[in-house]
C-alpha cells in the first residue's frame, strides 16, 4: 500500500503540465518560494505551478514560469507575484490569465490566449491593471526604479 502511494506520488510529480496545471517552473535561482494553500514550499525546477499560487523571491532570487498557453513570466529579486486566475483551453485557445505583482520586478511574453483574444491576460499592480495585447513587456513595483532614467 505504502509502496503504491509512493509510486503514485512519484508519477504525479513527474507528469508534464499539458493537463490541469497552469504552468511549470522552468527557472529557479537563489531563494524562491511557492505559496500554495497557505503553506510555503521551496521551489524546484520542473514543479507544476497552479492558479492561486504565489511566487516569492529573496534578495538573490529569480524565477521563470512557462504557462500552458506558451506565455512566459519571469520575476526578479525581492518580488511577490500571485496568479489570481488561470484558465486555458488548448483546443479553442480561449482563456483568462490574471496575475498580481505586489512588489518587485516582472518580465512577460504573452502566449496563445492573447493572440486569440487580446486583453485576456491581465496584470495588476498596486495602482493599475494592465491588459495585454501582446507581446513583451516589463513591469516594476520597486523603490529602486525611482531614480533610473
Amino acid at each position: 500500500m505504502r509502496k503504491t502511494l509512493l509510486c503514485l506520488a512519484a508519477l504525479a510529480a513527474a507528469l508534464p503540465a499539458w493537463a490541469n496545471d497552469a504552468g511549470v517552473l522552468k527557472v529557479s535561482q537563489g531563494q524562491v518560494q511557492v505559496e500554495r494553500d497557505g503553506k510555503a514550499v521551496p521551489a524546484s525546477v520542473g514543479m507544476a505551478i497552479r492558479a492561486s499560487d504565489t511566487l516569492r523571491t529573496g534578495p538573490d532570487g529569480a524565477a521563470g514560469v512557462t504557462f500552458t498557453d506558451n506565455s512566459l513570466i519571469s520575476i526578479g529579486p525581492n518580488t511577490v507575484f500571485s496568479i489570481d486566475k488561470y484558465r486555458f483551453d488548448s483546443t479553442t485557445h480561449a482563456g483568462e490569465f490574471e496575475g498580481s505583482l505586489r512588489k518587485g520586478k516582472l518580465a512577460a511574453v504573452s502566449g496563445k490566449m492573447v493572440k486569440q483574444t487580446p486583453e485576456s491576460m491581465k496584470l495588476r499592480t498596486p495602482s493599475s491593471v494592465m491588459a495585454v495585447r501582446g507581446t513583451e513587456f516589463v513591469v516594476a513595483v520597486d523603490d529602486v526604479i525611482a531614480a533610473a532614467r
Binding site: 522552468k26 521563470g64 514560469v65 512557462t66 526578479g76 520586478k105 518580465a107 516589463v138 516594476a140
Partner: peptide, 11 residues
C-alpha cells in the same frame, strides 16, 4: 533595471 528578471525568462 530588469537584468536579473529578463535572464530568468524560460526558453
Amino acid at each position: 533595471i530588469f537584468a536579473e528578471t529578463v535572464k530568468a525568462l524560460p526558453g
